[in-house]
Nucleic acid binder design. Structure first.
Lengths: 205, 205
DNA sequence: CGTCTTCTTGTACCAAGGTACAGTATCGTC
DNA sequence: GACGATACTGTACCTTGGTACAAGAAGACG
């Protein structure tokens, strides 16, 4: 790690204290600089600015600094922005204010050829390969479920607790748990929160 | 790296020489074994068998060995198989006959929380994301929250557990719980499921 | 300088979620 | 009649979610 050269590219070019702590000796540069002095970087950290799109920023960095892997730092991480970053060639995407230890970990992964990508974004990418439109009808998520399971799934997706679903459907909480368990297994999701995302059309199964 | 325990799961349970060279002391097990003896693995290598689907194999490994990250080894790597592996929770996907140095590199990346994914597969995933559903602007649900709370709220709304949010933001699970509690109180919702509905635009707060 | 807000973290506890094992009843199919 | 699928339910247990009490650090503000 001591041999790597880190460039932090941001709007103002100054280094946050935690960046310096993570990588003593790292360079801080403004995105708008015409050229970057010194030894070529082995790793580029791009601190996103609200004033530019991720794709524009990455393209500019690419044009000026070449092919060193780039990790994007975002003040307000989100899946859309993450998608844009990876589409534009980033190798990592994380929070601007991550602790130094986390930054070093991300650096290690990316320097060794891996990706640093959030779990929810990865799931999003995987599910997008099915090309299912945002508002998933029950025919998709509900295709493998029984009628009762679909009822329970919809109630859960509206935010009901197991007790609430039991009251609503006139069955015991234990029966609701049985249905919920079967639904989670059939749809291969870990919990009711993810189930809700699928039923409400934020994910496809 | 010396402290990590590697399990190689394959049809016959024997270790290829290059696997042993990469990780002396690694255990070799048959996928069909009822149970795995010894110290829990820190990393699982699953050698795919033509006789089983990737999803079935990964599910079985998951059920028997728990949540250690899993890297899939394939004799005939391809994007379709790779997709299935990552969809089933794998953290890496590479060639069965990769050289020991490459295997150690993949192990490093995955043990540090990264992904090992092929370039063409990553491009495939990115190309599939053509349409992205609109999200409720943070100005509505996020107006009364602090910046950190909005970050936590968004992560939760994407389906993350408290542990997952903690990993993502580089803070402890206890801190995430503190933020989640504050968010639930400010938005006057009973739990993270309802929070998710608000953030994703299914409810007004 | 004192106060307040925000962020962070600890231990502890209780409720809810989810899983496991086990079982009965009904209905449709062979 | 046997069998499988579905719906329903029990006890038990473990994990996660959420709350309570407590506390320190840093930055902004009067």
């Amino acid at each position: 790690m001591g041999e790597s050269t880190h460039y932090f590219i941001s709007e103002k070019g100054d280094l946050l204290p935690r960046w310096q702590e993570a990588f003593p000796g790292a360079g801080g540069f403004r995105l708008g600089e015409a050229a970057f002095a010194g030894k070529p970087p082995s790793l580029i950290w791009l601190h996103l600015s609200p004033a530019r799109t991720a794709a524009d920023s990455l393209a500019e960095v690419r044009a000026k600094l070449g092919d060193a892997p780039c990790i994007v730092l975002s003040d307000t991480p989100g899946d859309e922005e993450g998608l844009a970053c990876f589409a534009a060639g980033a190798r990592g995407y994380c929070n601007t204010h991550a602790v130094p230890e986390a930054l070093r970990q991300v650096a290690d992964v990316v320097l060794q050829g891996g990706l640093w990508i959030g779990e929810s974004l990865m799931q999003r990418l995987l599910q997008a390969t099915s090309r299912i439109p945002p508002k998933a009808p029950a025919q998709t998520w509900g295709a493998t479920l029984t009628e009762r399971e679909r009822e329970v799934a919809q109630a859960v997706a509206c935010g009901e607790s197991n007790k609430g679903v039991a009251r609503q459907l006139g069955i015991t909480e234990r029966t609701v748990k049985a249905h919920v368990g079967a639904i989670l297994e059939k749809l291969e999701v870990p919990d009711r929160l993810r189930l809700s995302l699928i039923v409400n059309g934020h994910r496809s199964s």
